[in-house]
Amino acid sequence: MTGTATRTVPRPGVRWLRRALRNPTLIAGAVIMLVVLALAVFSPTPYDPFAQDLDHGLDPPSPAHWFGTDQLGRDILSRVVAATGTDLRIAVLAAVVPFVVGLAVGLVSGYAGGWLDWIVGRVVDTFVAFPFYVLVIVVVFAAGTGERGIYVAYALVGWISYARVIRAKTRSLCRQGWVEAAYGGGLSHTRVVGRHLLPNVLPQAVVLLMTEILLIMVAVVTLGYLGLGVQPPTPDWGTMISDGQLFLTTKWWVSTLPGLAVVTTGVGLSLLGDGLADVWRLR
């Protein structure tokens, strides 16, 4: 029975890459997000996004202004591109703390079990019972509008979804013999969790991260729309959509084109998440 495994099997990294390159969902998501990311980082605005030109307010799309201009004569394309940086930055930054906290809480409570797990379970259930947006809006009101409020709100409530998923995954992994074998082999709990469990749950957490960034981005836009998010004149898709609402029937481009940017980014993130889940075989 020895020496039968002669066929060479490529390393998991190589296998992963091969599967990834054959997955159209992942490729499409990655391409969209690379473009969005490039726009956010390099911000190639054709005009100054803050420059007003009251003589050319609410101009329709034209060769000079591809996306038209808003009520203050600002170039909408430039503002959409500039807003990419704002909104994506906020979404990604706001997603970091919940990711780390939720992953840690989920791993520890799923691994430890017992009363700790019981408490985490009750806390999670309690938070889940509230409508998510209501919670976020309450925290933003309390912590102050703008970026800071959003970060605080997500740090407080965003970890719940990770904790839930990772806790369940960890619990099911703990029933596998290798977890017991690692601890039985003399490794510390910390090492069992860090070296053995973490890599096994990380893919799940990363897929969730993509969805969360998307949800946070939509929430930032929504808060902007409600006037609770990014404050003018900083360009933000939500504020732009809200600004154009008054002329939606006659000057469609003012709201619609920033809206399209939200939808495109959203589709990109969700394709990326789905593609990763496929490649990691999480479904």
Partner: peptide, 27 residues
């Protein structure tokens, strides 16, 4: 813990799928 070792029934659940045999032993 090291003094008393267990060999389990299910060989398909007894090894961490993400580590090579060498990594498991080295650990």
């Amino acid at each position: 813990r090291r003094a008393v070792q267990l060999v389990q029934q299910d060989p398909f659940a007894s090894l961490n799928p993400l580590l090579t045999v060498g990594q498991v032993l080295d650990d």
